[in-house]
């Protein structure tokens, strides 16, 4: 089984930081409004509550990112792409090559900054129709993409589905 690139933890960590910031903002606005309207007694708008909550969110996010990295793995097997992921809910997915519709590589801004890329595998399934493999070096992503494309094409030709 292949692990993701360790640097993906930074990508997810930044995601956690952004979430924490958004939560802090929402809580801050909430407390200010709450104080003004005085719906909830004893709430004073201050920096402590939003900050405290956002720190908790950030720490949880970091822990989640670390656990996620530890669990995430994938493998190109004989007839299918196999992935294991998920912290709270563990998800193991089998994507048969025959069912691969097309394969993308993607690079978001954070990924570009950290020099990483993702590969997205699309199927025609009704749910989970696309599977994303994050945390790949651009080179690996390219190779994985062409590899999957090739495997999909081969099995397609064999099976004429």
């Amino acid at each position: 089984m292949e692990k993701l690139h360790p640097r993906v933890r930074f990508v997810w960590g930044i995601g956690a930081a952004v979430t924490a910031a958004v939560v802090a903002l929402v809580v801050a606005v909430g407390t200010v409004l709450g104080e003004r309207v005085a719906v909830v007694d004893g709430v004073t708008a201050g920096i402590e509550l939003p900050l405290g909550i956002s720190v908790v969110v950030f720490v949880l996010g970091l822990v989640h990112a670390l656990a996620r990295f530890r669990i995430w793995q994938f493998e190109i097997q004989e007839d299918a792409l196999y992935l294991e992921r998920g912290v709270i809910t563990r998800i193991d997915t089998v994507v048969p090559f025959v069912r691969v519709q097309h394969v993308d590589t993607q690079r978001g801004p954070v990924e570009r900054a950290t020099g990483l890329a993702s590969v997205v595998v699309y199927t025609a399934g009704s749910r989970g129709a696309d599977v994303t493999i994050p945390g790949l070096t651009p080179d690996r992503a390219q190779r994985l993409q062409s590899e999957l494309r090739e495997l999909a094409r081969e099995s397609e030709q064999q099976d004429a589905v």
């Binding site: 998920g86 563990r90 193991d92 994507v95 025609a124 399934g125 009704s126 599977v131």
Partner: peptide
């Protein structure tokens, strides 16, 4: 299409899983 096995925290405690056979 894809075959997905899922185990939530609570399912893992009891060693259970959901298995989804996805179609188009």
């Amino acid at each position: 299409q894809t075959v997905v096995r899922q185990r939530t925290v609570f399912q893992r405690r009891r060693d259970l899983a959901n298995l989804t056979a996805d179609t188009a």
